[in-house]
């Protein structure tokens, strides 16, 4: 009796399993395997290095995708996320294969302006130490500039939004210099600051401080006046009204300013590093371009993309935490 039930169960399981094969995963495994084979089987027209490593990685990717194709339905929520990216995974495999083929394997897209994926990988292998140092330098410069700029911009914005006289004198100045790209200040700041590092911090701070100041000020001054009336009747002094009404009420605006400032700060960071720094990702790009090390340049751009979008993501997380009181469905 139990045996029969078991057999029936197994049959049900296998039929369910065939239905649960993840087709996109299977196709992706094929495209990744193709990329791996193209990389290892065809000879490079010019040596790039790390051929075996890239072929091995894409091959491993293909193997993992193959396993996932049959097991992804057992992984619950993570599995669902992986399945969602199925078409992307297929496209990436195709992209790798074509990229290998058109660059390293045929030379249709020639060196030095184009580089195969294993060329980029080779940069990470060979230049690992130097890139880590550059990432550290860039993050330090960006961190110092961004956080000081945002702090000053936020405080300035509150003063501008709250105090009439601050607003009277400060707002026209801010409106006048606000739209000037921070890069326009580069020559002057490099002259005024003792070191290029200080000057660069200032430029990054300026680039993000201004949008934060403007948006904070407009946020504070556009707070529904009725909130202040309520707070005043409840016995709130000015300090309470600023800290507990004006600031939380204007936080959605402040975050718009923070996002703008974030993008501006990335832009000016790279420019400032290209002009005067001794290390850093911007400096590295500049340096490698001079030696036609385009593979290194692309590899660095990939690092920047990951870093910048990671920081943007962090800011989104912070915003969702702090603004969880808002009605959902805005973004």
């Amino acid at each position: 009796m139990t045996d029969i039930v078991q057999t029936l169960d197994e049959q049900a399981d296998t039929s369910a399993a065939t239905r649960l094969v993840w087709k996109h995963g299977l196709i992706a495994a094929v495209t990744w395997a193709a990329a791996s084979i193209v990389t290892i089987a065809l000879p490079d027209t010019i040596k790039w290095g790390s051929v075996g490593l890239f072929s091995g990685l894409t091959g491993a990717g293909a193997a993992i995708l193959l396993v996932l194709a049959f097991t992804v339905h057992t992984l619950g929520k993570t599995g669902k996320t992986i399945e969602h990216y199925g078409p992307w995974l297929i496209a990436v495999g195709v992209w790798f294969a074509l990229w290998e083929f058109t660059t390293a394997k045929t030379g249709w897209l020639p060196k030095p302006f184009f580089s195969p994926p294993h060329g980029l990988l080779n940069v990470y292998v060979v230049e690992f130490d130097r890139l880590i140092v550059c990432i550290g330098y860039s993050l330090r410069l960006w961190g110092l500039g961004f956080f000081s700029g945002v702090t000053v911009g936020f405080l300035l914005g509150i003063a501008l939004g709250w105090s009439r006289s601050f607003n009277y004198w400060g707002m026209p100045i801010l409106k006048l210099i606000g739209p000037v790209p921070a890069s326009a200040w580069i020559p002057a700041t490099f002259y005024f600051f003792p070191t290029t590092f200080d000057a660069s911090i200032f430029l990054v701070a300026l680039s993000c401080g201004i949008p934060v100041a403007i948006l904070t000020a407009s946020g504070v001054s556009s707070v529904n006046k009725a909130y202040y009336d309520v707070a005043r009747t409840l016995g709130a002094d000015e300090r309470f009204q600023i800290l507990k009404v004006a600031i939380p009420a204007s936080l959605p605006h402040v975050f718009v300013g923070l996002f703008m400032g974030l993008y501006y700060s990335f832009a000016i960071l790279v420019v400032a590093e290209m002009l005067g720094a001794k290390f850093g990702l911007g400096w590295y790009i500049q340096f490698q371009t001079a030696y036609s090390g385009y593979a290194n340049v692309y590899a660095t751009i990939v690092i920047m993309a990951v870093l910048c979008s990671g920081i943007v993501k962090l800011l989104f997380v912070a915003r969702d935490r702090l603004l969880s009181w808002q009605e959902k469905g805005l973004i």
Binding site: N224, A226, Y227, D229, V230, R232, T233, L234, G235, V245, P248, A249, L251, W325, Q326
Partner: peptide
């Protein structure tokens, strides 16, 4: 001569602080 918690006004709109 000014607002005081001994005299409180309840507005037509509840005017609750949405972040609290």
């Amino acid at each position: 001569d000014g607002p005081d918690p001994s005299r409180l006004l309840v507005f037509q709109d509840p005017t609750l602080f949405p972040w609290r």
